[in-house]
Structures are given as C-alpha cells and as structure tokens.
Computed example of a mutant assay.
Amino acid sequence: MADQATLYIVPTPIGNLDDITTRALQTLETVNWIAAEDTRHTHKLLQHYGIKTRTMSLHEHNEDKRATMLVHRLQGGESVALVSDAGTPLISDPGFVLVRKCREHNIQVVPLPGPCAAITALSGSGLPTDRFIFEGFLPAKNQARSSALKLLLERTCTSVFYEAPRRIYDTLTDINTVLGKERQLVLAKELSKSYEAFVSGTADDIMAWMDAEPGRQKGEFVLMVAGAAPVTSELPPQALELLALLSAELPLKKAAAIVATHYKLKKNALYQAGLTLNNDPG
C-alpha cells in the first residue's frame, strides 16, 4: 500500500514488460495518481497488468504547471507515482522540477530501483565500468555536437550517450572527425527487446553494420565511447615518481596539483596517470 503524501519515482521496462518489479506494480496500483510522460504509452503498460489508477500527463512542456498542482495534491495527503515512457524517470526524461519542488516543500520522495537503458547497456558493453560519464543526448546541431565531442579527446573514462535514429549517422561521422577513426565504440540497440544487439568497433565499423540491413537503423540506441588512452609517456619519470610518493600520503587530486605546479605540467594528465599507477597490480 502506498503511503499518503509521498511521491514515488517508478522505473518502467525499457522494452521487455517482464522487467518491471513487484514493488513497482504494487506502487502503481495503490497510489492515487500516476504522472506519466505520455499517458497513452503508459496506459498500454497499465492495461497489460490490469492497473486502473488514474493518470495525468507530465512532460517537458507542462512540467512547471503540473508540478505545482501535484505538490498541492501531495500536501493534501494524496500519493503520486512518477513514470516516464521507459526506464528510470529524470534520466534524460522529465521529473526534475517535480522532485525539486517536493524536496523544497518537505514532501517525502521515494525512488524505486529498476530499469535504466544507460546502465543496462554499459554493463554489457565490454568497456571499462569503473569510471564512466553519462551525457544523455548529444546536441542536435552539428557545431554544438562537435564541441561536446571535443570534451572526450582527453577523457579517459567511458562516455555513455543516448542517440536518436535520425541522428546516429551524423554522430558517428562527427566522432570520426573529432576523435579520429580509431576510437573504439559500442552501440547497444533495442535493449531487452527481440532485436537487441551490441556492436563493437570503430564508427566506420558500426556504420557498415547499420548499412548491411535497413532495419538496423531504427530503434533506440545507447552509444558508448571508450576513453582515451592515458598519456603517461610524455610525463617526466621524476614527475611520476614524485606523484607516486605524494599520492601514498595525500588524495590523488591534491598530489597531482602539487606535481603539476612543481613541474609545470597538466594537472589532468597527472591525475589520469595517477589512476593508472594506483590500478597497476605490479
């Protein structure tokens, strides 16, 4: 039974309807209202499980107004479940305004664990998962997208993006231009659905795979970009030696800053080198 005056953040399946949790179904069934990104889409899920809870729309164009109204309902003792079309709400989906307003008004917010396309894709990608950055959707315009990709030139951790079918080719082309033709990628398509696929390789490799069958260019995509290799060979050996000594006594970030100042080197390059040193079993 849902508690009164509580906002629940309820993840929903990203494809396979069996991926919803028992707790999520119980919550959707017992709250007073379900705030949905697209009520028509959510009704299919609710109908599948025989849930008759009332719904209202909450999307990027009406979130400010609806958030105010829902806070009023919550303050009146009603309970609300927030869902998006698929996956975890707020992750490249609406809901931030509502959650922030609830926190400001001391309304209880209870997030449920569940499906998330970014995490699902990353876990099966074969790319490093110890450090990663989720970027959401890249900008639609070419210049802005290229500027965003330039941030990956020296980033050594895995980067995770969502991408739309109509823009995936442009993004892969820009990756070739900005990051070079050798940067390794993994494309995850239609996660948890019948045509789920993971494709690894360069941007050219992935475009060739998509060209082989027209249907491969459709669907939902998660694009993951391998990090740049840490550049340690350009760092003086004495700088690395000092970094190793200092990082044994100080936080790596502070040690890197000290060594960078002393040898007039880039702090980020030293920090990344320190991560490599710390992970070296030898």
Rank of each mutant, 00 (worst) to 15 (best):
A5M: 09
V10L: 12
V10N: 11
V10W: 09
P11T: 07
G15I: 06
N16Y: 08
N16Q: 03
D18E: 13
I20D: 09
T21A: 13
T22Q: 14
T22S: 12
R23I: 09
A24R: 14
Q26F: 15
T27N: 12
T27C: 15
N32T: 12
N32H: 14
W33G: 03
A36P: 14
D38F: 01
D38V: 01
T39C: 14
R40S: 12
T42H: 01
H43Q: 15
L46A: 02
Y49P: 10
G50R: 08
K52A: 15
T53W: 05
S57F: 05
S57V: 00
H61M: 04
T68M: 03
M69H: 11
L70S: 10
H72M: 08
R73Q: 10
G76N: 13
E78Q: 14
A81S: 08
V83A: 07
V83N: 12
A86V: 06
T88A: 12
P89W: 04
L90A: 10
P94G: 12
G95K: 02
R100L: 15
R103F: 09
E104S: 11
I107A: 09
Q108P: 03
V109Q: 09
L112W: 09
P115Y: 04
A118Y: 02
S123F: 00
L127H: 04
P128E: 05
P128Y: 08
R131Y: 12
F137E: 04
L138E: 03
L138R: 06
L138K: 05
A140P: 01
K141R: 15
N142E: 15
N142K: 13
Q143C: 06
Q143E: 13
A144K: 09
A144Y: 02
S147D: 14
A148G: 00
L149V: 07
K150D: 09
K150L: 05
L151R: 15
L152R: 07
L153I: 12
R155L: 14
C157A: 15
C157Q: 15
C157K: 07
F161M: 04
Y162G: 03
A164G: 03
A164H: 06
I168P: 04
L172F: 09
L172T: 09
L172E: 10
T173A: 15
T173M: 10
D174T: 04
I175K: 10
V178Q: 11
G180D: 01
L191M: 08
K193W: 03
S194E: 14
S200V: 00
D204M: 01
D204F: 00
I206P: 02
I206L: 04
M207W: 03
A208V: 00
M210S: 01
A212Y: 00
P214W: 02
G215L: 11
R216F: 03
F221C: 05
F221L: 05
V222H: 02
M224C: 07
M224E: 02
V231Y: 00
S233T: 13
S233V: 11
L235H: 11
Q238D: 01
Q238M: 01
A239W: 01
L242V: 00
A244E: 04
A248L: 06
E249A: 10
A256L: 11
A260Y: 08
A260P: 02
K264D: 12
L265Y: 12
L265S: 05
N268S: 08
L270P: 11
Q272T: 14
A273F: 11
A273V: 03
G274E: 14
G274Y: 13
T276P: 00
N279K: 15
P281H: 11
P281E: 15
G282L: 05
